[in-house]
Design a protein around this nucleic acid. Structure first.
Lengths: 121, 121
DNA sequence: CAGTTGCTTCGACATGTGTCTATGTTGACA
DNA sequence: TGTCAACATAGACACATGTCGAAGCAACTG
């Protein structure tokens, strides 16, 4: 269940996008991660897991929050897993997912604009 | 050339993803913006423009940095434009693009993880 | 005006993506 | 062991997306 990319996207990504031009390999890896959060259901899944009490959520909780079938949720969780954003663990009958905050933090850092005045309070 | 979405994605997006669950409309609008930066060429375009001297770059500069044709670059610039991330202005023969740092800043803010300890120095 | 250059738009095509139903797999429990 | 419930995987299909060549538009230059 801990099958995920080795966070390759994160090798040399912490310099903000607006500070210096991204290299092509950096862009390729970053694009994969951004693609994984460029779907409304995956964004809400990520948000539900990250904001859930205890920092983790059961798949059964997640499935109930959407109008799509179980396999579809399973597919989206797999995409998030393979991008390194979340990880799942089976405990008994249920599977619990939690986010990797470092990955989230690095994505956030990449998008910080060059102009400090543009950063909201 | 200033044809862009009215930044609808930004209506109520500044609360970090990990703080409270995203609403469905919020997720839909955010997903559009993230989708626009989920392509390696668009990420590099954004980075080239944002990090360029004076905060703006000519299309001619951008086209030279890639192995794809002019129409393809034009297409990617349109996608970035329609997501509200950049804006273009014609000055004489050339068209210059610049980023909207507020949009970048808000995307960055949404991705900030809940755990403060996870934010890199 | 005609020609040229910079950039965009159009139309076509191959590939990628989200969704479903059907089927596996894993663990609990009788 | 057999059965049930929770998730995952496989295969299929409609639709979206990235790319190109061809054509259009705008501005400079003779």
């Amino acid at each position: 269940m801990s099958k995920q990319l080795p966070l390759v996207a994160m090798d040399a990504c912490c310099s903000p996008l607006a500070r210096e031009p991204l290299s092509e390999p950096q862009a390729v890896e970053l694009a994969k991660v951004f693609k994984s959060i460029s779907d409304p259901i995956r964004l809400r899944l990520l948000s539900l897991i990250a904001s859930h009490e205890g920092g983790e959520a059961c798949v059964c909780d997640l499935t109930d929050a959407f109008d799509v079938t179980g396999p579809t949720i399973s597919h989206h969780l797999k995409v998030l897993r393979e991008s390194g954003l979340i990880d799942g663990e089976r405990r008994g009958t249920w599977v619990y997912y939690r986010v990797h905050p470092e990955v989230l933090a690095r994505l956030s850092a990449v998008l910080v604009p060059a102009d400090p005045a543009a950063v909201p309070a």
